[in-house]
Design a protein around this nucleic acid. Structure first.
Lengths: 145, 145
DNA sequence: TTTGTTCTCTTGAATCATTCTGGTTAGTGG
DNA sequence: CCACTAACCAGAATGATTCAAGAGAACAAA
């Protein structure tokens, strides 16, 4: 064995206490390969890898992997949920008002919460989520014509 | 007349090109009096003031007033939409992970966008939305028992 | 390897927030 | 006061997500 290798998807799943199934391995790899995919796109990616998987299984696996911290769920206002594999660096997102495209924005601080509220109203805050709203290059060009 | 008085709700509606109806006046006042109310709560508040109003009329009026900039819509991940009457100061929100309670957090800058993305990916950004996630005092007490 | 427990997947239906449709009512400018 | 059109109504439809219950599969212990 090669102990210095990065863990396989299967090992990561086992590491967080989840059973290793073909569907979950495929889902984890689909999310990591893809770019802020929605549930349908993830289901389709999983099916490309392992054949038939029900949409409900995808939802359940997404919940499980999100709860385990292997993937992250983002949900810009007005959009269905999207998932990403980049975790642990507390980065943020830019979202296009027109087409919903999402891109990553590095966080200067790198760990949550990266901002401090001026008045926390007694809340114990553990994360500051930032969404930059605007127009992606394509939509900006289209709308200024 | 008293020109220095602040405009009435009716005048504000007319000012943005909307017809003045009892329902819309009541809705505007309900949203401003309330604290990040949801659609059902707003409908209920409007009905307390003017009798029967259909839920569809409430949705339509909320859209109209939001588009006109008289109220603001916020939609934390996993929650139905909420509306607030405080506008024009680009403030942010703290949201309780457990019960969904929302409180306002002043923005140090005061005008959008108050943050600058480290890499905007070519997007033309006009707003930086910040949501602080944590536990409200009540839920923090309940969970640490 | 066999077995048993429990987690995962399946099909199917249900729920919730929101939007759409088509027709009626009522502000508003002329 | 009239006409025009925004605003309203009831009802149905949509889309994302969740719930339910039974069948199947992973894993640990024997």
């Amino acid at each position: 064995m090669t102990p210095s290798q990065p863990p396989t998807s299967a090992e990561e799943l086992r590491g967080v206490g989840l059973r290793v199934t073909a569907a979950r391995v495929a889902l984890l790899e689909t999310v990591r390969t893809g770019d802020h995919l929605g549930v349908e796109a993830i289901a389709s990616g999983v099916r490309d890898r392992v054949g038939h998987v029900s949409l409900q299984a995808v939802y359940e696996a997404l919940h499980a992997l999100t709860a385990a911290g292997l993937i992250r769920r983002i949900e810009p206002a007005g959009s269905p949920a999207r998932f990403e594999g980049r975790i642990g660096d507390n980065h943020h997102h830019v979202v296009c008002r027109s087409c919903g495209a999402v891109a990553d924005v590095d966080c200067a601080v790198g760990e949550a919460p990266c901002l401090t509220a001026s008045d926390d109203h007694g809340f114990s805050i553990d994360e500051a989520e930032v969404i930059y709203w605007g127009l992606c290059p394509a939509c900006a060009t289209a709308s200024s014509s």
